[in-house]
Design a protein around this nucleic acid. Structure first.
Length: 450
RNA sequence: GAGGCGCUGGUGUAAUGGCAGCACAAGAGGUUGUGGACCUCUUUGUCGGGGUUCGAAACCCCGGCGUCUCCCCA
């Protein structure tokens, strides 16, 4: 047993999986940017109040799942359990409500919940999300949902179904609750303990009860959609129509509600349908909705909002489960070998132009026999070996050997990059600024067109 | 936070309460410097702490971690 282990419910992403996550992130970030949602990054901790205010009193996230941080000299910090509250805090703190609306942002960050870990439910997990502040129109709801639908399709997730519902706005809420309390009260004695407690607190969540008996009772309850205001219904009709016109397939789930109190009107979830995930209830890969009262609750003006959040770990697992190919390769393209045991610096010198050209280049530092170095290069998964310090590689020449095709060629030093390029696919080289025809790393931190 | 089940080198496994083995992987070397083979050698383990016992990987208790269920939820 190792002396130290990762904390309970937290895991390492080893290079292969991390590489896959990077790919997924790149796809998502690019998509978010194309929709006009640039990335935002907030601290990993916030004042506990930020979460307490946003989540609502009846949410467990606000209570026992809060991941408190005991830090010398600070009071009342907690690791963030989700992205919406911190982003909303940032929106208000930086006066983004006084910038052109709507404000659209994307995030991808680790989140924390102090719960007992289960499969795909960690104490530290990765979550991505979109938030849109300042747009009350149904088209914003539609955009958020359509984004998610397209994202999941793009990355290759097929076994998923979209469920939508409306739970009415804050004005409708009292009426909705009253009607549901009235209905469920007649069955008070038949509900199990947990469920009966919800009757006092957030009645809506009775629909989430797992007990078969409770579910049966819930099935007969009045539909929330029939209890909300005409405006709420009209909004929902617009959302539905928008989804239909965009060809987004969905089903209306009369009993779907969400865990947080701040949701208003539209709520939605993307549920995994692969048998692997439906054994013990539904697992959603993404979900969200409208939260028109949240900004106000957090101490700001009356600004509408709508957003989505998804679990990266769940999505990633589901994709693997479905057999979606994700490139997790971390191997070097090129391995530098040498028959000369005392030419360490020369090996690095040989690697430099290849690295400049964008190849992944690893060096065998050892003084072992070429035999062993070659074996090692193969085991490390390199595609090409560049060999110096041999008979053939004198006079400014090296051997470029394709380890897959098992063919090699003696090449002039000046032509190594080109020769390697014949065997290894080009890799994109990141730059600080996009500039047509730019060579090398751009030294600009600002856009030169400014 | 509660409950069920589990935990043997890096991985996969074996060992009636009686010497902790095996395979793969890993490292070094050789096959006299062009590769995954082969050969030799080497490293690494009973999750931790108590207890029962002449003797514990095994039985008991506490803790850790995983997994599933509940709670809750991404």
């Amino acid at each position: 047993m190792p002396t130290y282990q990762a904390p309970r419910g937290m895991r390492d992403l080893l290079p292969e999986e991390a590489a896959g996550f990077d790919r997924l992130f790149a796809v998502m970030l690019a998509r978010a940017q194309r929709y006009g949602y640039p990335r935002i990054v907030t601290p990993v901790v916030e004042d506990r109040e930020v979460f307490l205010r946003s989540a609502g009193a009846t949410s467990d996230t606000a209570g026992k799942e809060m991941y408190d941080v005991a830090l010398h000299g600070t009071g009342g910090l907690a690791l963030r359990p989700d992205g919406t509250a911190p982003v909303t805090r940032a929106y208000l703190e930086h006066g983004l409500h006084r910038t052109p609306q709507p404000v659209r942002v994307f995030y991808w960050e680790p989140m924390f919940r102090g719960q007992r870990p289960q499969k795909l439910r960690y104490r530290q997990f990765w979550q991505w999300g979109l938030e849109n502040f300042g747009a009350a129109e149904a088209a914003a709801d539609v955009e958020i949902i359509e984004f998610t639908n397209g994202l999941l399709a793009t990355v290759g997730l097929t076994d998923v179904v979209l469920k939508v519902n409306t739970i009415g706005d804050t004005a409708s809420r009292p009426k909705v609750k009253a009607a549901l309390v009235e209905y469920f009260s007649t069955y008070r004695d038949e509900l199990d303990d947990d469920c009966r407690q919800r009757l006092e607190g957030s009645v809506l969540r009775i629909f989430d009860c797992k007990n078969p008996k409770d579910r049966q009772i819930a099935a007969g309850a009045p539909k929330v959609r029939d209890l909300v205001s005409d405006e709420d219904r009209a909004h929902f009709a617009e959302v539905s129509e928008g989804l239909e016109r965009l060809g987004v397939r969905y089903e209306i789930d009369d009993r779907m509600v969400r865990g947080f109190d701040y949701y208003t009107r539209t709520v939605f979830e993307f549920i995994l349908t692969d048998p692997e995930f439906t054994q013990a209830g539904e697992i959603s890969v993404a979900g969200g909705g409208r939260y028109d009262g949240l900004v106000r609750t957090m101490g700001g003006p009356d600004v509408p909002g709508v957003g989505v959040a998804g679990g990266v770990d769940v999505l990633y697992f589901a994709l693997k489960q479905q057999g979606v190919k994700i490139d997790e390769s971390v191997n070097a393209d090129v391995y530098i070998l040498s028959g000369d045991p005392n030419d360490g610096a020369d090996r690095t010198q040989l690697a430099t132009p290849l690295r400049e050209a964008g190849f992944r280049v690893a060096i065998d530092y050892s003084k072992r026999s070429l035999d062993k170095q070659l074996e090692s290069a193969v085991k490390h998964g390199a595609t090409v070996a560049v060999i110096r310090g041999t008979e053939e590689s004198r006079g400014g020449k090296v051997i470029v050997r394709d380890l897959v095709a098992k063919e090699q060629r003696v090449t002039r030093l000046a032509a190594v990059v080109v020769e390697v390029g014949r065997h290894v696919p080009k890799r994109q080289k990141p730059r600080l600024v996009d500039e047509p025809g730019a060579a090398g790393e751009a030294p600009y931190l600002t856009d030169p067109r400014d």
